[in-house]
């Protein structure tokens, strides 16, 4: 009988000093950067064993809500917070860009290996105005390609997502009709098409449906060997999404002070037009020493973390942005 309490007391003795030293920081938000974030937190834990950073990938919307309600120490999002969302808290929230991603038009066409599309054509396809692959607008972009005389089956995300945000943000920039009729958000009212849940849902439907066109994250398309089209950029060049062309898109945009910037349809000959930053959301003023801890981590992220991005398929920040973010991080308290 007495063995159990003794054992418990022993366990408490062992655990107490460890618990006192162990610091935890909690974050939640976007699913898109989850692989790189968990890699970073893992590596950073090796550098600073006394610090444990937990991250729940609950989605950008949830991340924004939780950081606003202060239930987490940092949030993460793929779409910048709106003015309305920022007004909900009187404290100042900083957007810290961490890495870049891209969204690609994935397609399933037999015998077409290098499809080329432009923003207005993509918008018209997703609006339901271009219905067939043999539409003159598509043929003009793909001279000589064996386009099938078939209807286009449009596939989009059914779940709200940062991927959707980036995609429709681009469509809205290149098509006034998209902007007024559909708009930009993590979930929109799709004029046509089938909805698939998650990147895997969209990719699954595209793979299984002949003559379909959808959109997925670049990383997902690469890992799963899904065919994706090049997109005509602002400088009039067809660019296929890849890590250098995504970083180029970020370099071609004038960065505002608060980093809340969309880099879709970016200028620059090499820029891939459907690219986006992903951000961590941190308070400028933090309770206790949380601010100092976050600051240390973010510095490490800029210095050592960026190098890990491309192996996981993310584009690292361009040097100009790194220099700027380094200054912003200093203001965190």
């Amino acid at each position: 009988m007495t063995r159990i309490p003794k054992f418990l007391a022993f366990a408490v003795l062992l655990a107490a000093p460890a618990a006192a030293q162990m610091k935890t920081v909690n974050g939640a938000g976007a699913t898109f950067p989850y692989p790189i974030y968990s890699k970073w937190f893992d590596e950073y834990h090796k550098v600073k064993p006394e610090l444990q950073i937990n991250y729940q990938s609950i989605g950008s919307g949830g991340g924004i809500r939780q950081i606003t309600e202060r239930t987490v120490d940092f949030g993460a999002t793929d779409g910048p917070m709106t003015e309305e969302q920022l007004m909900k808290t009187d404290a100042s929230i900083l957007h810290i860009p961490t890495v870049l991603g891209a969204v690609v038009p994935a397609y399933n066409l037999k015998g077409v290996s290098d499809l080329k599309l432009s923003g207005p054509v993509l918008a018209d396809i997703f609006l339901g105005k271009i219905k067939r692959w043999t539409d003159p607008a598509i043929v003009k972009l793909n001279p000589g390609a064996a386009l099938p005389d078939a209807a286009i089956t449009v596939v989009h995300r059914s779940d709200g997502s940062g991927t959707t945000y980036c995609w429709v943000d681009y469509l809205a920039k290149v098509s006034p009709e998209w902007k007024t009729k559909v708009g930009v958000a993590t979930a929109v009212k799709w004029p046509i098409g089938l909805g698939g849940k998650g990147n895997e849902g969209v990719a699954g439907l595209v793979k299984l449906t002949p003559n379909s066109l959808g959109y997925v994250e670049l990383i997902y398309a690469k890992q799963n060997a899904i065919a994706y089209a090049s997109v005509l950029n602002k400088s009039g060049k067809f660019v296929k999404a890849a890590i250098p062309s995504v970083t180029a898109a970020a370099a071609g945009v004038k960065m505002p002070k608060d980093y809340r910037v969309s880099i879709t349809d970016a200028a620059g000959a090499e820029a891939y037009p459907v690219s986006t930053f992903t951000w961590m959301l941190v308070y400028e003023k933090n309770a206790g020493d949380k601010g100092a801890v976050l600051k240390e981590f973010l510095k490490w992220m800029l210095k050592d973390g960026q190098g890990m991005a491309s192996t996981l398929g993310y584009a690292p920040l361009p040097d100009s942005v790194i220099a700027m973010v380094a200054k912003t991080i200093e203001t965190i308290k």
Binding site: S158, G160, T186
Partner: peptide, 12 residues
């Protein structure tokens, strides 16, 4: 049930 499962996480 499907729309709740799909959109709840990212309802901004």
């Amino acid at each position: 049930a499907a729309v709740i499962a799909n959109e709840l996480a990212e309802a901004a």
